[in-house]
Nucleic acid binder design. Sequence first.
DNA 1: GACCCGCCTTGATCTGCATCAAGGCAGAAT
DNA 2: ATTCTGCCTTGATGCAGATCAAGGCGGGTC
Lengths: 250, 250
Amino acid sequence: MTHIRVRSLVVESARPSEPCAACDARPFSVCNAIDQRDIERLAALAASLTVEAGRTFIEEGDPAEHFFNVTAGTAKLFKLLPDGRRQITGFAPMGTFLGLAVSSTYAFGAEAVEPMRICRFSRFKLRALLDDFPAMEKRLLEVASNELVAAQEQMLLLGRKTARERLASFLVTRAACTANGATPCGHRAAEKVTLPMTRSDIADYLGLTIETVSRTLTRFKTERLIDIPSASEIVMRDHAALESLATGLH
Amino acid sequence: MTHIRVRSLVVESARPSEPCAACDARPFSVCNAIDQRDIERLAALAASLTVEAGRTFIEEGDPAEHFFNVTAGTAKLFKLLPDGRRQITGFAPMGTFLGLAVSSTYAFGAEAVEPMRICRFSRFKLRALLDDFPAMEKRLLEVASNELVAAQEQMLLLGRKTARERLASFLVTRAACTANGATPCGHRAAEKVTLPMTRSDIADYLGLTIETVSRTLTRFKTERLIDIPSASEIVMRDHAALESLATGLH
DNA sequence: GACCCGCCTTGATCTGCATCAAGGCAGAAT
DNA sequence: ATTCTGCCTTGATGCAGATCAAGGCGGGTC
């Protein structure tokens, strides 16, 4: 396998045969708005990259030259204040389309939480291609609308929920998204939730500190709401109680 | 003028002659993506409504049957917790398009801060019309992208900024949006900022309490950063200092 | 003009979460 | 096997902002 280092990311020469056709992420992604026979045009634009865990592949403020599609692994999206305070605005699992923005620079940074594979498109070229595929543009609007709804929910969490409610919301949402079968956001709540991110990431996502996250989780454990077999695994023991906590009922 | 009460909103029979053509909000709105000769098709779908200050015209959780366009006045958009805690997720000034959502129910409520005029469209009919006007769909995607960026900025504010930084951010953003000339979001910072919303609204927008908002503003005053000629008017005396406060520099 | 009613300001006190501090633990390197 | 290192947990203390409480102020009504 040939690797070429470009801007500190590993670029693989796009396999000529089945670049998009055999993509694991396609069923979860905006790409599936384009049908089989047109997919090659999209594939021609895509560069497949590998991103190692911990690597920042979008730098806030950099010129926004690319769109990305997460094909494996998870990224965290974040904004920073000059003194280092960080707000993680979301996690981007497989299938997530990144880089929607009208501005010419990225409004947020992105860093791999786990080893990732991403698909990279030239913003300029994709824009031209979108004119030919209104179905994909429609899909993008849907995606953006959904993210807007999620963002509003997160504002409610950050502005008005207690630490307990935030953690409960986080776990419940994760459980819904990790659900059995489909990886990104199925609809049956999972028993076991895997947390690929660190406590620090969770804290920065929920507007708390590491210590509060840790304490709150251990308190949930003593209250028999969850089990914590390992730091990155949570078992939901009382889903109903967590859900009502998440919605603000005590 | 004929008024017809419908679902506790005042509906005016759409003036047959110039419903959209002479609309004040059009230059600021997604409608301007549709050119002059097609605007009548849009106008045929629109109902022009008057909303009195304080009236809720979108109820969170209600079936989402309509899209709205704010043609005059300002609305607050909010989410509630069962015990009454409220997060205002944004203010919608003239030109704002409301109701983007894939779900069949509204994800947020909307209430008039000032007397408003809004343009109401059937979701179903507008969706059909959008297929004929890809330019408008593009515009919607742009709008949604911009709101997503704003939402991320607000998450940073809610999750990581201090009360002083939140108020400073709020004032600076308002100043940019109230700027001279164009009402919604010009690009020169205004000297005087008008706040049509109450302290309670500001508090619920910034994730604070009324008291903290009030105290912080009076402290800004004693520090000569602002003047407060009346409760709903703020004069920016030291814009630079407020801006650096807003970005987290002390 | 007097009263009322919302809204805003200001002061006193409380508290949930942050901060400071000290290990514990598990996987990686040697 | 031992040490190291990064991450996590737990405890003690502090503080920003919430809560509780008491007027002030301005605009509307009678």
